[in-house]
Design a protein around this nucleic acid. Structure first.
Lengths: 152, 152
DNA sequence: CTTTTTCGTCAATCACGTTGACGAGTTTAC
DNA sequence: GTAAACTCGTCAACGTGATTGACGAAAAAG
């Protein structure tokens, strides 16, 4: 009989191993200063860009916090801010080529890591794993507001 | 063909739903101020108690950070500090009855949550889920140093 | 046109981590 | 047996990433 506390720890350990390997690879591929939280933020920015307020909404944080995140990402060269020509209040946050690069590399690395799981477990077991989790995770459950949630 | 990025998000969402439900229940049961990070720390303290230095080692943080965590937990009434009679340098951190209570309740809630998964997925699929994760997670992978890891 | 709303930012604060330094207590070496 | 070396917990200063409140500028609504 499995102890109930083990399942969440396994889920977390699995997630963590993905993220750790992702960032180890990214570091080797010229992105040593991307932190897990930044990856979520860059993903939330997306190729179309966002305003700081919308970014905050996507990440589940205040617009001020999102603004600070943008500032850090800007200093690292992953995003840039431009004025919205149609609305003098808005600033548009968009990915730089470096930001696009890190997202492309991340997608490729995730695919490779998943393939590694399929190699060790068999493709079917990975599919079943995903299917089971999809059933248990609420529909809107793939949220990007992971940073800071833990200490909340 | 599944996108590689989905699996880690599903793992995280699953973990998160466990932790969110745990803390919602704990709040109802008289522990509204336990945060996820505190749960890990209390688990690391354990029924035998630890020194702040050892706690830091278990949580993967500095002894100073562990000391601050102890201070917060002490203020909330979950742990208490006593002098080690055999070594004047050491302080022993032990669970208070309230600390023991929150651990017992957490274990019971985790068991209930896992039973809920088994009810929706079937016991076998949950077993297979755990088995697959156990295969992929490194042996020492059930570490307690989750807090602060994300922003590291 | 005036009022209200929205947007981004500044400022102060808090939670939680870090490194460096330090006094007190214990252990080791001579 | 005492001097040196190490270990323990804590203090201080600082960095990061979040919070709330306030505020000016711009847009929208009346």
């Amino acid at each position: 009989m499995a102890e109930g506390y083990e399942l969440p720890l396994l889920l977390f350990a699995g997630f963590r191993s993905f993220i750790d390997e992702l960032h180890a690879e990214l570091a080797e591929q010229g992105h040593p200063d991307v932190r897990p939280a930044y990856g979520f933020a860059l993903q939330a920015v997306g190729r179309d860009g966002v305003t700081p307020g919308e970014l905050g909404r996507r990440l589940g944080v205040s617009k001020q916090a999102a603004g600070k995140t943008v500032e850090r990402l800007e200093r690292l060269g992953y995003v840039e801010r431009t004025d919205d020509p149609d609305d003098g209040r808005r600033k548009l946050v968009g990915l730089t080529p470096r930001g696009v690069d890190v997202l492309q590399r991340s997608a490729a690395i995730f695919d490779r890591l998943r393939a590694g799981w399929a190699e060790r477990l068999g493709a079917q077991r990975v599919d079943e794993l995903e299917a089971a989790l999809r059933e248990m995770v609420p529909a809107g459950g793939l949220r990007l507001d992971a940073a800071g949630w833990f200490g909340a």
